[in-house]
Design a protein around this nucleic acid. Structure first.
Length: 844
RNA sequence: GGGGGCGUGGCGAAAUGCAAACGCGAAGGCCUUAAAAGCCUUUGUCCCAAAAGGACUUGCAGGUUCGAAUCCUGCCGCCCCUACCA
């Protein structure tokens, strides 16, 4: 089978060596040329490149090479998101040090990437687990600390009782630890936070100013930030003049329907309200019960709403009514004020709870005719609402809020779902947080001249009992940078999402030692013009990176407001209907594909099989087809090498020049109909491929257009009817072949580079400009017009381009294939679309 | 519960006024001692002996329009995200 395949192994190795030896993809700032920063999300060095990576990098390489051929100065870097838990797991399971495991994986994966032939500037490689990298992150941490953007607090986190560590939200799968499958429990822990909520408004506002991003990613970010407008006000507790309960609501208009109020079980006021010993015991029991609820129970959609009625009552300030006060598991301390006014008439959760506890329900919005539902959340006229009666919901909200302000009870308030970013990890393999705890001075940041705080190598990693750093005396016991006394070093490390929040900035000047990056380099390259990565980072990484960029901007380090101008979210690579994974046994290895078909074929298939944003179903037959296509290209050039070599070279116009051909060649002007039609197809293909890449990333249709041109090339060559004049043959074939190679180059760089050389070119094909369609060649003399009768195709007309509407109407009505459909009917109307169709509308 | 997306041949997918480009698969043929590779033809369904021709067809039901896979409404199915967010 493979015996007749072109020698991809040899040519791929040779060109990779050439590109590396000549440093072909090394770039530097060049203010005389427009820049293009093309970036794929850098990988975690898990061990092997998989097909999802290949897809990601094939798309990036295509765009990078294409933009370069269009004259841009292209920055296309690669690096490693090298901190993370899998390295620690490997240490636990196999006794390999995380640093060694990581660095071996990086070496292996770098070699794999080089064999894919991606056009990276490898001189800019970045590795986030090196002190030269994370020292800048530590410096920024200190700056953030100074500005109150980094702070320490106690909070409830996901705790795995078996692994004895905190898990990030994304490491909890269906309420279980992704590593050991234990049920995750909530737990109070001290930790460090970044104040991303300070940027909530800006992050949200800029969602409307990122037209290069997919709408669904922006929607997910908007939902995640979750801005809601409402009001906050105080409820007095009956008989307890010193105590006021602050509640947040988005529906102040419904306040007259408040029939009870609820505190989150862990609300701090509970202890002040409850004084009786017996009630306090009941509260403690209720709290324990709720705290025991595991993540799994919390995720259950129909989780029962548990509540405990307190003896105290609160007063509805709107109507003076005394109403019961509850603790309930459906009110969360982490959102709003941790307390609510309950309006069962207009809130389904309150409705459920009220029914369970026999509480009254008051309707404050008139239901629509025939309403049969429970709580009503729609619009309508206010009823049972005192001074709000008769108003619409929107007007009543405004009036109720104004009233609260006037009474000095509350105010309008905006709340966000977004929480501050918890960055503490009780783990070893991460960047140390540069803070100390001094016996005399308290918490003190490490002195800048002492940075980096280097992660020590000689640790015992057991996976049990918290961070290994805590049991490393040489690391923990340190000197206070403020007073010189004894201090204990922070042993938490930073979430690895911090490293990936600024790596794209470090790429601008990766070896610069003076600062986090060189200002001029970042000003030249930033922002990233095209970012490409998986949809799974739609919120987390992309939101964190946006936040971190804004922080760096406010620290005066960078000028841009947003890091990524355009984003392409590629779909997953699927096999047998499921994401490829070891456990499912449906993994196709990049090495196997490269060995069997070559890198060019693998890349071509991944770009051809589906548009990039959609999931891609792997197909063993599909890749055979791509292999066959490249062999067809190869065979054509080799079998016609002599004939092609004799034709004038580079009779192809290039973008950015107004006329003529480059390199002394002559544009062929065929006189035969076949020759003219063929040349038109060559130039239509240029136009179509350019549009497909440029406008909507439809690489699959771009490839099919190139395939059609190759099919046409074979047909033109065989010329069974002898209609091509001999003088036109070789020049047109050469123009077609060179066009195919130039258009295909960014998709399949090795084979095109090789064939380009075999046509006699001395320079790399990637130093050539992208071809431009010749308007002369695109001109058509005649077009086929479809004639419809009542919307059905009944005939076709071959007419001059831009024929007059009157003439089209006449020809259509007179056409003998059309007449039978019209003859016994009355012509009502004739719709003419120039150069496209005529539709004759009739009536009996 | 909320938000978003998708539904077209046997399959991956094209198509903003001619539905099914391109590729895969399948069937038949050529080449070959044979195979591989390659090449050629056919390939949505139905009516008709066939051709010519015609009818039907983009999840289902409606609507807008001269004209709808495409726009609108409702329903069905699948996928993703999110989740007691007050």
């Amino acid at each position: 089978m493979s015996s007749d395949r072109y020698p991809f192994r040899e040519i791929e190795a040779r060109w990779q060596r050439t590109w590396e030896d000549t440093k072909q993809f090394r770039v530097t700032e060049d203010p005389s040329r427009p820049k293009f920063y093309c970036l794929e999300m850098f990988p975690y060095p898990s061990g092997r490149i998989h097909m999802g990576h290949v897809r990601n990098y094939a798309i990036g390489d295509l765009l990078a090479r294409y933009k370069s051929m269009r004259g841009f100065n292209v920055l296309h870097p690669m690096g490693w998101d090298a901190f993370g838990l899998p390295a620690e797991n490997a240490a636990i399971e196999h006794g390999v040090h995380p640093a060694i495991w990581t660095s071996e994986n990086i070496d292996y994966m770098r070699a794999q990437l080089k064999r894919l032939g991606i056009s990276y500037d490898w001189d800019r490689e970045v590795n986030t687990c090196e002190p030269e990298y994370y020292r800048w992150e530590q410096l920024i941490f200190i700056r953030m600390l100074e500005r109150g953007l980094a702070y320490r607090k106690r909070s409830t986190v996901n705790w795995c009782p078996s692994c004895q560590t905190v898990l990030a939200n994304e490491q909890v799968e269906d309420g279980r630890c992704w590593r050991c499958d234990s049920e995750v429990m909530p737990r109070e822990v001290d930790g460090w936070f970044f104040k991303i909520t300070a940027y909530a408004d800006e992050l949200l506002a800029w969602c409307d100013r990122l037209p290069g991003w997919p709408e669904r990613v922006l929607t997910m970010q908007r939902n995640w930030i979750g801005r809601s407008e409402g009001a906050e006000f105080d409820l007095a507790v009956g008989g307890r003049p010193g105590i006021r309960i602050r509640v947040f609501t988005t529906r102040p208009d419904t306040a007259f329907g408040m029939t009870y109020a609820v505190l989150a079980p862990e609300h701090p006021l509970v202890d002040r309200i409850v004084t009786d010993a017996r009630e306090a015991a009941a509260v403690a029991e209720f709290r324990a019960e709720v705290a025991k609820e595991s993540e799994i129970e919390r995720l259950a959609a129909d989780r029962p709403k548990r509540g405990l009625r307190l003896r105290a009552e609160v007063v509805n300030p709107f109507n003076g009514a005394a109403i019961p006060l509850f603790l309930a598991n459906y009110v969360l301390m982490g959102y709003g004020t941790g307390a609510i006014m309950a309006v069962p008439g207009e809130d389904q959760r309150d409705w459920d709870f009220a029914r369970q506890h026999g509480l009254p329900i008051i309707e404050t919005v008139k239901r629509p005719e025939g309403w049969t539902g429970e709580a009503y959340t729609g619009d309508g006229v206010k009823i049972n609402s005192g001074f709000l009666d008769g108003l619409t919901v929107a007007d009543a909200k405004r009036k109720a809020t104004d009233w609260l302000v006037k009474q000095r009870l509350g105010e309008a308030k905006v709340n966000y779902r977004l929480r501050d970013w918890g960055i503490s990890r009780q783990r070893y393999w991460g960047a140390p947080i540069p803070v100390l705890y001094c016996e005399a001075c308290g918490m003190v940041p490490e002195a800048e001249e002492n940075l980096p705080v280097v992660l020590p190598r000689d640790v015992q990693i057991s996976g049990k009992g918290g961070s290994p750093l805590a049991s490393h005396p040489a690391f923990v016991n340190a000197t206070c940078p403020a007073c010189g006394g004894r201090a204990r070093r922070e042993t938490d490390t930073m979430d690895t999402f911090v490293e990936s929040s600024w790596y794209f900035l470090r790429y601008c000047s990766p070896r610069y030692e003076g600062s986090i990056f060189e200002r001029a380099a970042a000003e030249y390259w930033m922002p990233v013009d095209q970012y490409i990565g998986g949809i799974e980072h739609a919120v987390l990484h992309l939101l964190y990176a946006r936040f971190y960029t804004k922080v760096l901007r406010d620290l005066g380090l960078v000028k841009v407001d947003e890091p990524f101008t355009a984003l392409l979210s590629q779909g997953m690579v699927i096999k047998d209907g499921a994401k490829m994974s070891k456990s499912k046994g449906n993994v196709v290895s990049d090495e196997f594909i490269r060995e069997k078909y070559g890198a060019d074929t693998g890349r071509l298939f991944e770009l051809f099989a589906a548009p990039p944003e959609r999931d891609l179903e792997w197909s063993d037959q599909g890749i055979e087809g791509c292999s066959r296509f490249l062999n067809r290209v190869w065979r054509f050039v080799l079998t016609h090498q002599t004939e092609l070599a004799g034709a004038p070279p580079e009779a192809v116009r290039v973008h950015g020049r107004s006329g003529g051909a480059v390199g002394g060649g002559v544009s062929p002007h065929p006189t035969s109909d076949t020759g003219r039609a063929f040349r038109r197809q060559i130039h239509e293909t240029i136009q179509r491929v350019t549009d497909d890449i440029e406008h909507d990333f439809h690489f699959n249709t771009a490839i099919s257009a190139i395939m059609e041109l190759v099919n046409a090339l074979y047909a033109f060559e065989s010329d069974p009817d002898g209609r091509v004049p001999p003088a036109e043959r070789a020049p047109l074939m050469r123009e077609a072949v060179e066009t195919v190679l130039l258009l295909l180059g960014p998709f399949c760089p090795h084979i095109t580079e090789e064939l380009w050389a075999r046509l006699g070119h001395r320079e790399s094909i990637f130093t050539r400009r992208w071809p431009a369609a010749d308007p002369e060649a695109l001109k058509k003399k005649a077009v086929t017009i479809v004639v419809q009768v009542d919307g059905r195709v009944r005939g076709r007309l071959l007419v001059d381009v831009d024929a007059a509407e009157d003439r089209l109407r006449q020809l259509a009505l007179g056409d003998e294939r059309v007449r039978p459909w019209v003859v016994s009917r009355r012509v009502e109307k004739v719709v003419v679309v120039p150069n496209r169709l005529v539709n004759i509308v009739t009536r009996a």
